[in-house]
């Protein structure tokens, strides 16, 4: 387990040195928000419509920006055969998967945290601290599921010719069960619901996260074995 942290720490150290992935992901998600905000310009004052549309827009921005990052996570490992070097280390394959999840989670979550204020400004929300914490919880649960599947599929598409194209095609259908409750819960929170009303969504997100983390952990060795 501790070695998963070493892998994640190594990834984050490399990432924060160049900030390549983080910057491009953040700018991309910001652009998505801006584009939607402009196209909804006419009724941004209409709270009812905004409440219906904004949560979906937020998750579209996060999903596509996150995918941008995911498609890169294993590329850095292949540059000098590092993935092979990792597999030669005395750790099981699952630890490599967990390490990659931790670093991806940190990077994508950071991107989301930086994007969120812009979302609040562009869509004219005013949120209390309680609401914000609840929103962060949902962001975390949704992002974890996204990363759990995304990291596995990123490794899976590594050996294909059309890697960047294939990842979204494979990922999006599997993400539906995490995106729907995440969007629903986000909408609920932004509309002022308390945590008590969001139990079904939170439960589904937690189940998805757990199931896909465990299964992906189990099958990861088959994805990287040559």
């Amino acid at each position: 387990m501790i070695r998963s942290f070493y892998i994640a720490a190594k990834d984050l150290k490399a990432e924060f040195r160049t900030k390549q992935m983080l910057n491009s992901m953040f700018i991309f998600s910001l652009l998505v928000l801006v584009v939607f905000s402009i196209s909804f310009g006419d009724f941004l004052g209409d709270t009812e419509k905004v409440e219906k549309l904004a949560p979906g827009v937020l998750w579209i921005a996060f999903t596509f920006a996150g995918m941008l990052g995911l498609s890169r996570t294993f590329v850095m490992e292949t540059e000098n055969g590092c993935l092979e070097a990792l597999m030669l280390c005395p750790v099981d394959r699952g630890a490599i998967y967990t390490g990659k999840i931790l670093s991806n989670l940190a990077i994508v979550f950071l991107m989301e945290a930086v994007t969120l204020p812009f979302f609040i400004i562009l869509f004219n929300y005013s949120l209390g601290i309680g609401t914000l914490l609840l929103l962060l919880l949902i962001l975390f649960l949704g992002t974890f599921g996204f990363i759990a599947v995304g990291t596995l599929l990123s490794a899976l598409t590594l050996g294909t010719r059309t890697r960047e194209l294939l990842l979204p095609v494979l990922l999006l259908p599997l993400l539906l069960p995490v995106l729907i409750p995440a969007v629903e819960a986000t909408a609920g929170i932004l509309a002022g619901n308390s945590i008590g009303n969001l139990i079904p969504e939170i439960r589904l997100l937690a189940v998805y996260d757990l199931v896909f983390f465990v299964i992906s952990h189990l099958v990861f060795e088959h994805v990287v074995s040559d």
């Binding site: 190594k10 150290k13 490399a14 850095m76």
Partner: peptide
């Protein structure tokens, strides 16, 4: 210990 024609090193570190 494996020494291959790949360097097994991370360029950004």
């Amino acid at each position: 210990g494996m020494l291959s024609h790949d360097s097994y090193l991370y360029g950004d570190l």
